Amino acid sequence: MNATSSFIYNIVDWITKFAYLNLLWILFTLLGGVIFGFFPSTVSMFAIVREWLKGETDISLFSTFWKHYRDEFFKSNLLGVFVSLVSVVIALDILYIKSTTNELLTWTYLPLFAFMLLFIMFLCYLFPSFVHFDLKLWQVIKNSFFIMLINPITTLLIFLCLLPFFYLVSLLPAIGFIFGGSIYAFISMRFSLHAFQKVSEKQQALKVSNEI
């Protein structure tokens, strides 16, 4: 196999992997009745992407996905309760604003929109932190928020990569159905791993300085 053929094969192979992972995400979400399947399925997808990024590219997708789905079913649904509650509060606030005024961009509502932005930024690190760190649920939530606060540039890079992809999906919805979840997981996980490494290096440097 020459270099060109090898390159084309690798491209097709990765396209197939991303599409298959996205299909598993959808199917296992449905398996849990959507409500109880979405968060375990999303966690499983992020766990597989993490293994890819760490060099484990030849894993069995189905069996690995099922293992993470089964092992993290209850913990990930507890995470889902937290995310859903915050989302419901935001949605109710928005509905209240719409029912009381026709203007959503007045300065009095800036705290709500700032909170929404922080929550979206926080979600970029939540699932990566869940699968990367062996922590209790509340520690995962605190860790994600802390990492989000100290890595504004990394968060900006995540947004800069996701926005063009979401725009493309808005033009071609089929791309979102085939690759939406897996591409989102890959982008978030890729930059999150970089942020985790930076935090680890800072902690190690602080530890060394304290020992000195």
Rank of each mutant, 00 (worst) to 15 (best):
M1L: 14
N2K: 06
S6W: 07
I8K: 07
V12K: 03
W14T: 05
T16S: 13
L23A: 14
I26K: 00
L27I: 13
L27R: 03
F28R: 00
G32P: 05
G32L: 02
G32F: 00
F38G: 01
S44Q: 04
R50A: 04
W52P: 02
L53N: 10
G55N: 10
G55L: 07
E56N: 15
T64E: 09
K67E: 14
K67I: 09
H68I: 15
H68M: 04
Y69V: 11
F73N: 08
F73Q: 07
F73V: 08
S76T: 06
L78C: 10
G80V: 05
F82Q: 07
I90F: 14
A91T: 11
A91R: 09
D93W: 04
D93P: 03
L95P: 01
L95I: 08
Y96Q: 13
T100H: 10
N102E: 14
E103L: 12
L105H: 08
T108V: 12
F115H: 04
L117S: 14
L118A: 15
L118I: 12
F122T: 01
Y125A: 02
L126D: 01
F127Q: 03
V140C: 02
F146Y: 15
F146T: 07
I147C: 01
I150R: 12
P152G: 12
L156R: 04
L157E: 06
I158V: 12
I158Q: 12
I158T: 10
C161D: 06
L162W: 06
P164Y: 13
P164K: 12
F166M: 09
F166D: 09
Y167M: 14
L168C: 06
L168Y: 06
V169N: 05
V169D: 06
L171A: 13
L172N: 11
G180N: 03
G181D: 04
I183K: 03
S188E: 12
L193P: 03
A195M: 03
A195E: 00
S200G: 07
K202C: 01
S209F: 08
S209L: 14
I212H: 08
